[in-house]
Simulated scan of single mutants.
Amino acid sequence: MSAAAPDIHPSAVVEAGARLAPGVRVGAFCHIGDEVEVGEGTTFGPHCSVKGPTRIGSDNAFHGHCAIGGDPQDKKFSGERAELEIGDRNTFREFVTVNRGTGSGGGITRIGHDNWLLAYTHVAHDCVVGSHCVFSNNATLAGHVTVGDHVILSGFAGIHQFCRIGDHAFIGMGAFVNGDVPPFLMVAQDGYGRPRGINSEGLKRRGFDSGRIGAIKRAYRAVYMSGASLDDARVKLAELAGESDDVRALLAFIESGERPLLR
């Protein structure tokens, strides 16, 4: 038996250049543009719009009024080809907006797999988002932001352009982040967001044992609580990295950054 053909509501508009896999469902008053490719089992609630070039994987769920693949909100954008790529099994709740890339920023925005983007969240041009992340309501990424895996952005969190958020980081409600956040950290609102320990509860839920968490805590103390300069903290991290893959990952993150470290 062949797979079910796409189910398209009579009021929806699907341009001739769009490619919809079997099992895709398009709700009322949606618009699916040219050069949009959608994988099997993905669904669109009412009033969604998708502009290409955009590639969307399988089993994603777009709730009502999502605006996906729109032109980047960048004055330098002049209509050059720019793309959006979305993986599998992501959930996009009401009024989520995700923009395509820019020619000067790499040309593509990417979102991985198994993410939850809750209502009114925004992913700007040229961002790269990993997998298994949760963006709570109204969380916002400016352009060129990189987000690792298993990251949580609480409601109304805002990330400045070109910042990086490392794996397993937790950004608290309303925190505004204007520097790189290393893996495993918690950031809380204090004017601009400031580090407030490591995300130990989240790490426990993901199977990190006490030894791994202890090593990460020692690394955090070296960078954020010792009073040492960042150069001296790097030396201490290099010593601690000999016993921990996680500390090595944290040190590599710090050493590869172009923006100031959030401290």
Score class of each variant (00 low, 15 high):
M1F: 02
M1A: 15
A5H: 00
H9Q: 01
V14H: 06
V14F: 08
E15G: 06
G17E: 00
R19F: 02
R19I: 11
L20M: 00
V38E: 03
G39F: 10
T42Q: 08
T43E: 12
T43H: 00
V50L: 05
K51A: 15
G57Q: 06
G57K: 01
D59F: 13
G64C: 10
C66S: 10
A67Q: 04
G70V: 08
E80N: 04
L84R: 03
G87F: 07
G87T: 11
D88C: 08
R89K: 14
R89F: 06
N90M: 07
N90I: 10
T91H: 09
E94A: 04
V96G: 06
V98Y: 01
R100S: 08
G101A: 10
G103W: 08
G105L: 05
G106M: 09
T109M: 11
R110Q: 12
I111T: 13
A119S: 04
D126V: 13
V128N: 01
G130V: 13
G130T: 11
H132M: 07
C133I: 09
S136W: 01
T140G: 05
V145E: 12
T146S: 15
T146R: 13
G148V: 14
V151T: 00
I165E: 08
M173Y: 03
F176K: 10
V177R: 00
N178Q: 07
G179Q: 01
V181K: 03
P182K: 00
L185H: 03
V187D: 02
Y192L: 13
G193N: 05
R196W: 10
I198F: 07
L203K: 05
R206K: 13
G207Q: 01
G207K: 02
F208I: 04
D209C: 10
A215V: 04
I216F: 00
I216Y: 00
A219E: 10
R221F: 04
R221C: 12
A222D: 05
R234T: 14
L237E: 09
E243C: 09
D245Q: 04
D245Y: 02
V247Q: 03
F253H: 07
E255Q: 06
E255Y: 02
S256I: 01
R259Y: 03
R259D: 07
R263N: 07
